[in-house]
């Protein structure tokens, strides 16, 4: 069972990195919209797993995307941030349900899943573009980018989510 989890997550990691760098980094919709679908890795990652390993893994995920897109450590910084904040976000959204042993993401309501994904994406993009632009004079530019690209990422993540969702029994 453990090796199965490991295997699935490993495949997911590699595929998401490849899809991100070979397809979505080249999208350049309207000249600047490049959705970051690799956030789905953090959305799909099992909940009751070692937290330190999860943070480390997310850092590696961001770093490998940085390697491909020549962005130094922008992706790594923002992915590590949402990996660290994920338990807090989950407690905020799922509340008491999270404590149950049988809790699964697929058992929660659609609205909860949607909010969870949105929060992950918005926090990630905010950190990312703040670090990329790196000046408070351009705060409007940052907000514009966060808003538009979050929307694009959200739509694509939802599409991917429904496409590859685990069938409910």
């Amino acid at each position: 069972m453990i090796s199965n989890y490991f295997f699935i997550n490993f495949i997911r990691f590699v595929l998401l990195v490849l899809v991100q760098v070979l397809v979505f980094n080249r999208l350049n919709f309207f000249g600047f919209i490049n959705p970051m679908v690799y956030i789905l890795f953090l959305y799909w990652y099992p909940i009751k797993e070692n937290r330190a390993a999860f943070i480390g893994l997310s850092f590696l995920l961001g770093l490998s995307i940085d390697f491909f897109s020549d962005t130094m450590a922008l992706h790594a910084a923002s992915t590590t941030t949402i990996a660290y904040l994920r338990p807090a976000i989950m407690r905020f959204i799922f509340g008491v349900n999270l404590e149950f042993q049988s809790f699964k993401l697929s058992n929660s309501t659609k609205a909860q899943q949607f909010t969870f994904l949105t929060l992950l994406i918005v926090v990630h993009h905010f950190v990312f573009f703040t670090l990329e632009v790196f000046s408070l004079i351009n705060i409007l530019l940052i907000l514009k980018k966060v808003l538009i690209i979050s929307l694009a990422t959200l739509i694509l993540c939802l599409l991917f989510g429904t496409l590859f969702s685990v069938k409910k029994e």
Partner: peptide, 10 residues
């Protein structure tokens, strides 16, 4: 620690 590493690079 990880954040400091990435911030340093950035």
């Amino acid at each position: 620690l990880l954040m400091l590493i990435s911030l340093g690079f950035t």
